[in-house]
Design a protein around this nucleic acid. Sequence first.
DNA 1: CCAAAAGTGTTAGCACTACACCCATGG
DNA 2: CCATGGGTGTAGTGCTAACACTTTTGG
Lengths: 244, 244
Amino acid sequence: MSSSNILKNISVDCVVFGYERNALRVLLRQEFINYRGRIYEEWKLPGNHVLREETTDETAVRILREQSGIAEDVYLKQLSVFSDVNRLKLRDRDYKWKKEQGVGDNRVVTVAYYSLVNISDIDASHLYNVARWHKVSEVKELIYDHKDILDTALMQLREDLLNKPILFELLPELFTLTELQTLYEIILDTSFDKRNFRRKISNMKYLIPSGKRQENVSHKPAMLYLFDRKIYEKTKQDRFDFSV
Amino acid sequence: MSSSNILKNISVDCVVFGYERNALRVLLRQEFINYRGRIYEEWKLPGNHVLREETTDETAVRILREQSGIAEDVYLKQLSVFSDVNRLKLRDRDYKWKKEQGVGDNRVVTVAYYSLVNISDIDASHLYNVARWHKVSEVKELIYDHKDILDTALMQLREDLLNKPILFELLPELFTLTELQTLYEIILDTSFDKRNFRRKISNMKYLIPSGKRQENVSHKPAMLYLFDRKIYEKTKQDRFDFSV
DNA sequence: CCAAAAGTGTTAGCACTACACCCATGG
DNA sequence: CCATGGGTGTAGTGCTAACACTTTTGG
């Protein structure tokens, strides 16, 4: 990568959320940092510098493609800028490693994005370097300020899912109402009454029973639903409700 | 300004909203651009490059202080990054002028903030260069992509004021309920029923009658209210309501 | 027939909407 | 006494929350 091609002071980091085996997960990349004679195993968010001829949105798409094998259109939203002067220097070994990467500046402002993907859509063999899905609830420490970024993304996701039908992005095309409810409950860390949840769902005209049912389950097979984006775009309306 | 001190590729622009004489206003700075033998009068948002040793939040505060004489704590919120590759080149005369400013790079990613201030709190004599309050509804064209930034800020403001008690930031410390209602109506471009509005208000525990009343008005003097931030912080609660 | 999850209705309280008149003040 | 904006109540409607049992399938 020719350094005149990249903006040395600006990067993009992506918080890629997925949902698998009853847990919200985040895609992290592994790096090994050699510091004072010891090898540290570190995890970081997929990220990269912004190229001179690219918007930050394009950088985010490129990161997803190059580092996660995510080729299709996915939900991607700009979160926030992280610009703390010492964000790369919070731990000495991170900073030393950063300097070894050779991009040549130690002041990097990063634009964070978050993304929602359906894990089963992703060809795991395309995952760049060592990248793995981690349970969000079990992520303790990340390189630089990436744990802050992850925490911010999670807060934003919780807020967004109350106002926009985005959780479908985490599910396969066809899903059951119980799967959807469980997903809401896991991310919001709460629980809902099944009947009330379904009544609310049935007011959402863009959530459509597909006619197909689960197969090979040892209980009454559930109806599979799908999210119709076109109907949503047509019927959504701004909420006029200043409640706080 | 020594150019080694500043980040050439990163700036901050501030959309400063105020409210005066029944209109939402925005603070704009005037520049005269000499282009092909003609002087163009241009308006822009207050903005500047980020210094090497400062966060973008700090840049925004500095811009408000230096360019608007806004010294006190004001409401300030990060909006979004604008990173279009050609955002400075939308009009040739803007781009030529930018190059004359001598910061030395033509690829600038800007972090936009929006701010809410009480115009009467601001000492107008401190306004830097020529800066004036413009009716938001009458702003037609701005330099670079600043009109886009303003439009985005207005949309964000409309969304935020439905969910957070931020409009008080635009009013004097003591205000009447009619003033508050008019402010909502102007920004949202709608109208509310007076009794219903007041019922809603009376559910907001942090909105307190001060005991004082208007003076020297030729009608029944209205009660003056104040916004109690401490009570708001204590009593606010997350809304669990996925309605869309 | 057992285990497991699917699916379904009613009631009570609360919030939102629509709507019209009297009150207090300055001039 | 007039003009101006301040201030108040009620009834109907729809959303929300709480709550338990029957159904369908695989094993």
